[in-house]
Nucleic acid binder design. Structure first.
Length: 601
RNA sequence: GCGGGUGUAGCUCAGUUGGUUAGAGCGCUGGCCUGUCACGCCAGAGGCCGCGGGUUCGAGUCCCGUCACUCGCGCCA
């Protein structure tokens, strides 16, 4: 007989009755009765009920065994009487009678219970992650993560992609997010950077002629966390292919994404094909470049209705529009009829508090004595009747409906409107459930105006090919130039960003020139890549869907920590391993570093 | 860096207008119970009410500060 176990805890059934077997696992629950002590024994696979009778010499010892201790039971598999079968359990038709008992490891009082699935404090969960990971939901999420990655890998290999590993210690890049830096011992004063993504490497792999590449790649960015963004590190399905148009990339990746989601959908619908939404349209309709298409609400630019105060009797919005701003309406169908005034006031409060905006206007629509739709709320109260009919007509709203107004500078107004669209949709219960709604967001602008530095800068990825190529760069207004740049969005979560790359040195220099970088800067900052492109580079493109977010969606998790085995907290600390930590001064000396810490408050 | 929320027993939470000895469930310890499977019943142990200051005759409760966790903003080519 095996030293530890002959079966796992999800395995025994009526066919094993009469066999003498051995199980090892954790003490999940105990139920103490005068005639018998029941122990639910748990391992990775499941639960088995062990019954210990009082005539056993180890009876008292088992009774005193603490939950989560690791024990081993050897004994005979017994059938259960029909009225004692537990249909919830795979092993519920049998139980294991303990004839021998051994403790592998006994557990102290637990900082958090394993049994049950209520919420526990995040810091305790993270500090004792190994306990948290024993809990059913989290354990399942992590197993799912492994399965999703296996499925992705299988699909990519079947499509002829080659998986390579790229360096973890690489060079800092001036573009993009803040780098994690690693000091070089052998090169005093110089630093490696952890890759924000294997961006340049994958393009060089194309230049090297490997044609199709993928990698489940670790990426490192020293930026602050969000619910769907872990601090520090995350994984991407990094993909690049040669001689590929944007259409080719879509045709390869869409079935992979849809396939993976279908494989793990468990009854949820995956809508295909993914609609394609130009960036501009996405901003106008959803106030976001990651629209949640489960939400039926569509934004409406009503700025023009507020230009004439004689028609509106409302000066505030006129002022905003006159100053180049926008007034964006968020319809709230049936809200006036079904929700109280508090609902509307709370959204205004939310805009002020959470979004740190001046406020969110609203109007509730009701039927007046003459049968016409009216509003007693400030924004629409003094509208001339004809004018009111026009704006309500454009909004498609009538008595019983509500409407919110986000007003301000163009960027602010759409940002607030987009966020409000999410909140209103949720509050009104309009978000479709049990479905994955994907889209490609396409035609991102190549450049944007950087208000901070008062200059034109790349809006996304400087290595993207501008639509129209060199001619566009030479003839068009920079801010009007689009890029072959695309995102995959699912249920309002940005899953992936990608592009057809700029593989032509001449176009590259020109593109950087427009953003204010001279040729020499390009030559030094992107030396590896720009040099490579001078020796024959294939047209190529790719993308990089976020693995953690894919698993998060499939697991139905609200937070990305729920799909990461050992995540860090919001302050990018690993509470279990105590990272980051102080180091010995010897280590610093070897690295030629001296600390210059901020003064204690 | 900024804004919001939370912080009371090992864990989840309640705690009235500021008023006696701060409670419940789970867990723990002991006892009882003829087979449970979220077993049940009885008893017990367990509290720097996050921390520091203030107001007050009196603070878990009010005020100020601070810390921790978290959500968002900034940031994230």
């Amino acid at each position: 007989m095996h030293e530890f176990r002959t079966h796992n805890c999800n395995e025994l059934n009526t066919s094993n009755v009469g066999e003498t077997v051995r199980l090892s696992g954790w003490v999940h629950r105990k139920r103490d009765h005068p005639n018998a002590l029941f122990v639910d024994l748990r391992d990775h696979y499941g639960l088995t009920q062990v019954v210990v009778y009082p005539d056993q010499p180890f009876y008292e010892q088992v009774k005193r065994t603490t939950p989560e201790s690791v024990i081993q039971i050897t004994g005979e598999v017994l059938p259960r009487d029909a009225d004692q079968v537990n249909p919830e359990l795979a092993t519920g038709e049998v139980e294991l009678r303990a004839d021998a008992f051994e403790v592998h490891s006994s557990a102290d009082q637990l900082p958090l219970p394993v049994f049950g699935e209520p919420d526990y404090p995040e810091d305790i969960r993270l500090k004792h992650r190994y306990l948290d990971l024993r809990r059913e939901k989290l354990h399942k999420n992590i197993v799912l993560r492994g399965q999703v990655i296996n499925s992705i890998r299988r699909r990519m290999i079947e499509l002829g992609f080659n998986e390579f590993q790229t360096p973890i210690l690489t060079a800092s890049s001036p573009e993009g997010a803040r780098d994690f830096l690693v000091p070089s011992r052998l090169n005093p004063g110089k630093f490696y950077a952890l890759p924000q993504a294997p961006q340049q490497f994958k393009q060089l792999i194309m230049v090297a002629g490997f044609d199709k590449y993928f990698q489940i790649a670790p990426c490192f960015r020293d930026e602050d966390a969000r619910a769907d963004r872990s601090p520090g590190e995350f994984y991407q399905l990094d993909v690049e292919m040669s001689f590929a148009t944007q259409e080719d990339v879509f045709n390869v990746i869409e079935p992979v994404m849809a396939g993976v989601f279908e494989e793990f959908a468990e009854g949820r619908t995956v809508e295909t094909p993914f609609p394609r939404i130009p960036y501009k349209e996405s901003m106008a309709k959803y106030g976001s470049d990651k629209p949640d298409l489960r939400n039926p609400l569509i934004l409406n630019d009503v700025s023009d209705f507020f230009t004439d105060e004689d028609l509106t009797g409302f000066g505030l919005f006129k002022k905003i529009v006159g100053g180049g701003g926008k007034v964006i309406a968020i319809p709230a169908p049936k809200a006036a009829a079904e929700k109280s005034r508090k609902f509307f006031d709370n959204l205004d409060k939310w805009a002020k508090k959470e979004m740190q905006m001046p406020g969110l206007g609203y109007a509730r629509l009701s039927e007046g004595e003459d049968g016409a739709t009216k509003s007693q709320d400030p924004v629409l109260k003094n509208f001339k009747p004809d004018h009111l009919v026009k704006i309500l007509d454009q909004l498609g709203l009538t008595a019983g409906d509500g409407v919110f107004f986000a007003a301000g500078k163009v960027g602010d107004a759409y940002k607030l409107a987009g966020a409000a669209r999410d909140v209103v949709g949720k509050e009104l219960g309009l978000i479709e459930e049990g479905i994955f709604k994907f889209c490609w967001v396409v035609d991102y602008p190549m450049y944007e105006y950087d208000e901070d530095n008062k200059k034109v800068d790349f809006s996304h990825n400087p290595f993207s090919m501008p639509q129209g190529g060199m001619e566009a760069l030479e003839t068009m207004e920079p801010l009007d130039i689009l890029a072959y740049q695309y995102d995959i969005v699912c249920n309002g979560i940005e899953l992936s960003s990608g592009a057809i790359r700029n593989h032509r040195p001449d176009i590259m220099y020109k593109a950087f020139e427009i953003a204010g970088y001279d040729q020499q800067t390009v030559d030094t900052e992107f030396a590896g890549m720009i040099n490579a492109f001078k020796y024959g580079a294939p047209p190529h493109g790719g993308l990089a869907p976020g693995i953690d977010r894919i698993v998060m969606l499939l697991a139905g998790a609200e937070n990305i920590r729920e799909v990461i085995v050992f995540p860090m907290n919001q302050q990018a600390q690993d509470l279990m391993m105590n990272a980051p930590s102080d180091v010995e001064s010897k280590q610093l000396r070897e690295l030629h570093l001296r600390l210059d810490l901020p003064k204690e408050k």
